[in-house]
Lab assay of single mutants.
Amino acid sequence: MKVMIRKTATGHSAYVAKKDLEELIVEMENPALWGGKVTLANGWQLELPAMAADTPLPITVEARKL
C-alpha cells in the first residue's frame, strides 16, 4: 500500500490515503527508519523499503502491512 512518511514535531508519522488514516510511528526496528518494521500508534505494523538514511521527507513509499 502507498504510505506517506513525514517528520513531525514529535517524531515521524505515516499517512495511508486509501484508509484516510494518519498515525504517529511509535516504534522502529531500525533507527534510520528504512528497511524494517515500524509500529503505528493504532497498532498496525508496516514493513518499509530499504532507502538511504538521509532520504528527504515527506516521501510516499510502497509499504507492506504485516
Rank of each mutant, 00 (worst) to 15 (best):
L57V: 04
K65L: 15
A53S: 11
P31F: 08
L40V: 00
L46V: 06
W44I: 08
K2W: 14
E62F: 15
E62A: 09
N30H: 10
T55V: 08
M4Y: 08
V3F: 02
K37V: 14
H12V: 12
V38L: 02
M1F: 14
L33K: 02
A50T: 10
E23L: 15
A14K: 02
M4K: 08
S13H: 09
A9H: 10
K37F: 12
M4I: 14
A41S: 10
A50D: 12
Y15V: 10
K7V: 08
L66F: 10
T39N: 03
K7F: 07
V16K: 01
E29Y: 06
E47C: 14
Q45W: 08
K18E: 15
R6V: 10
P58K: 02
P49D: 03
R64N: 09
G35A: 05
K2N: 10
M1Q: 05
E22N: 09
W44L: 07
Y15S: 09
A41H: 06
L48V: 02
P31M: 08
R6T: 10
A52D: 13
M28C: 12
L24P: 13
Y15I: 11
K2Q: 14
V38T: 01
L21F: 13
K19V: 15
A32G: 14
E27L: 10
D54P: 05
E27R: 10
T10M: 13
K19I: 15
K65M: 15
E62C: 15
L24K: 11
L48S: 00
L46H: 05
K2F: 12
L46G: 00
T60V: 12
A9D: 12
V3L: 07
L57R: 02
L21G: 07
M51I: 08
I25R: 01
L57E: 02
D54Y: 06
G11A: 06
T60C: 13
G43Y: 04
E22T: 12
G36K: 03
V26E: 05
P58R: 04
P31C: 09
L24G: 08
E27T: 10
S13D: 05
N42P: 00
M51G: 01
L40Y: 01
L66H: 07
R6I: 10
A63Y: 05
L66S: 08
L40M: 05
A9I: 10
S13M: 13
L48G: 01
G11R: 03
T39E: 06
T55L: 05
A53L: 10
P49C: 06
M28Y: 12
A63D: 01
D20C: 14
V16R: 00
V61P: 01
G11C: 06
M1W: 13
E29T: 09
K19M: 15
L48W: 01
S13W: 15
L48N: 00
E47W: 14
M1Y: 11
L24H: 11
L21E: 07
R6M: 12
E29R: 05
V38A: 00
S13F: 14
V3N: 00
T8W: 06
V3Q: 00
W44A: 03
M28L: 07
G36E: 04
T60M: 11
T60N: 07
Y15T: 11
M28N: 08
K19F: 15
A32T: 14
E29P: 00
A50I: 12
L33Q: 03
I59G: 00
Q45A: 08
K37R: 13
G43V: 01
I5E: 01
K18N: 14
A63W: 03
K65N: 12
M51E: 03
A63S: 06
M4E: 15
G35L: 04
M51D: 01
A63F: 06
D20T: 07
V16E: 03
E23R: 06
E62G: 08
L24I: 13
R6W: 08
L66V: 14
L21V: 13
T55Q: 07
W44T: 05
V3T: 03
A52V: 07
K2Y: 13
L48I: 06
K37A: 08
G43E: 00
L21W: 13
L66R: 07
S13C: 14
P56Y: 07
S13E: 07
E47T: 09
E47H: 09
T10H: 13
H12M: 11
A53V: 11
G11Y: 06
P56I: 11
A50H: 13
W34L: 05
Y15M: 09
L66C: 09
M28S: 13
V16P: 02
V61Y: 00
N30V: 08
V38D: 00
W34S: 03
P58E: 03
D54I: 06
V61A: 02
E23Q: 12
L40K: 00
A17W: 15
L48R: 00
M1S: 04
A53Y: 11
W44N: 01
L24D: 14
